[in-house]
Design a protein around this nucleic acid. Structure first.
Length: 414
RNA sequence: GUGGUCAUAGCUCAAUGGUAGAGCCCCAGAUUGUGGUUCUGGUUGUUGCGGGUUCGAGUCCCGUUGACCACCCCA
């Protein structure tokens, strides 16, 4: 039996990596004053339809439950957040700075960096419209990636502004109902042959390509770059108006994070969605909002593909997982005394392991080695003395059993 | 949804159409109380599944399931 297509088992090594990633995410979000929330994995299908239209249903894990409700596994966190905020925002001072680490689902064929489920860090600021909030959010995404050991040599945030393009569309008198189509064409221009994009854009092709070739900018974009420069983060970001993002709900600044080597798909993306809360609450509540998401799959691939990031991860995982003390029961008659010591050491906060079944001494030492223990404590004929062995140096000392805790403390100091 | 590549031991992989193997891991031993390196021995398979061709199929053909990669789409 295997897991379903596109789903993962997390064996201990994979689970340790996942926990490492989550811990870094929580740590950095905390540095920025964000607080964690969560919501249901299952939502009414309408929540997603309302936001993205019927065609999204094709990629949704969607079904009718036993109460005949049309439901879907969450494909992203933003609609849930917008729903919660529309209902509950009065309880909280603005702006809200919230993050979440949801597992999200999509029904599509798995491929590199993309499965049918993954975890993502979502960070959102609700109720603030000044560009400083856009800069703050971008600084956060930069610091999230930096936390894994990556530098400005490894990744870059490409920052754009949908308003930059909608201004042009207004100027060129393109009817608003065709804006989304035009934005999609610009979004695809990097990945498609020029002729195809020209065809999509029609009379807009000429001005758009002029801008793309000489590089666009705006007062707002320059202000955000200036803000990042003050933080010393300018090397991690650049203005790039080619970024538009596929989702229809973005209204202003949008950005995506890429590895500089271009080996992976976008590792994070986000932007401003000032209308979404109003849209989901039928205009009962209107709050400006912005957020980003970064997934665990591509980030994990990138960490494993980078020597520095990988070493940092492995070191952290090892130091948190290895047991510190392995108790060797050299004589079965000593098992009772060993158990008492094990309980005491565990109460003191040590990670302690031992062989549940009786085993030869050599095997117990091999197990001590394999669990990564720094010390072995041998219970045998010397009782009430016990042997405390430093497994790194191989040196063993005989210590009265009741002096073991203080002896370990003295060895631990340096 | 479309296309390509692949599927052999727990893991990584061999095997001209002719008796299914290696390394790693695991287990046991090398004068009965001390790990890492060594040496010796051992366990492990309906060759993903179902059909077909053939005297004979892991190998060739068809189907199916799954994996990987690309496209579509992008949260």
């Amino acid at each position: 039996m295997q897991p379903l297509t596109g789903f993962r088992d997390f064996l201990p090594d994979a689970c340790a990596e996942r926990n490492y990633i989550f811990a870094k995410w929580r740590e950095v979000a905390g540095h920025y004053g964000f607080v964690e929330f969560d919501g249901p994995v299952l939502e009414e299908l309408d929540l997603y339809k309302k936001k993205s239209g019927e065609e999204i249903v094709r990629q949704l894990y969607e079904f009718v439950d036993k109460g005949e409700r049309a439901v879907a596994l969450r494909p992203e966190m933003t609609p849930t957040l917008a729903r919660i905020v529309a209902e509950q925002h009065r309880q909280f001072r603005k702006p809200l700075k919230w993050f979440s680490i949801p597992q999200v689902f999509r029904y599509e064929r798995p491929q590199r960096g993309r499965l049918r489920e993954h975890f993502q860090l979502n960070c959102d600021i609700i109720g603030e419209e000044v560009p400083e909030s856009d800069a703050e959010l971008i600084a956060l995404v930069i610091d999230v990636v930096r936390a894994f050991g990556f530098t400005s040599q490894d990744f870059v945030v490409r920052i754009s502004d949908r308003e930059f393009w909608t201004e042009l569309l207004k100027l060129e008198k393109v009817p608003p109902d065709r804006w989304e189509e035009m934005l999609q064409a610009i979004d695809k221009s990097e990945r498609e042959p020029r002729e195809k994009t020209e065809e999509r854009l029609g009379k807009l092709a000429k001005p758009v390509f002029e801008i793309l070739e000489k590089g666009g900018e705006s007062v707002k974009l320059n202000e955000i770059m200036g803000n990042l420069r003050m933080r010393g983060l300018a090397d991690f970001a650049k203005i790039d108006v080619r970024i538009v993002r596929g989702l229809a709900y973005y209204t202003g600044i949008v950005f995506e994070v890429f590895d500089r080597a271009g080996k992976f798909r976008a590792i994070a993306g986000g932007g401003r969605y000032d209308q979404l809360v109003a849209q989901l609450s039928d205009n009962a509540v209107s709050l400006p909002a912005l957020g980003f998401a970064i997934g665990d799959v591509v980030l994990g691939e990138m960490i494993r593909g980078n020597a520095t990031a990988r070493a940092q991860m492995e070191k952290t995982i090892t130091s948190e997982r290895d047991v510190e003390i392995y108790v060797v029961v050299a004589k079965e008659e000593q098992r009772g005394n060993a158990m008492a010591a094990i309980q005491q050491l565990r109460d003191s906060g040590y990670r302690v392991d031992y062989s549940l079944a009786s085993a030869k001494i050599a095997r117990q030492f091999r197990l001590a080695e394999q669990t990564g223990a720094r010390f072995a404590i041998v219970f045998g004929d010397e009782w009430p003395q016990v042997g405390v062995k430093d497994l790194t140096s191989g040196k063993q000392e005989s210590v009265p059993h009741d002096k073991v805790p203080s002896h370990l403390e003295s060895l631990r100091e340096p």
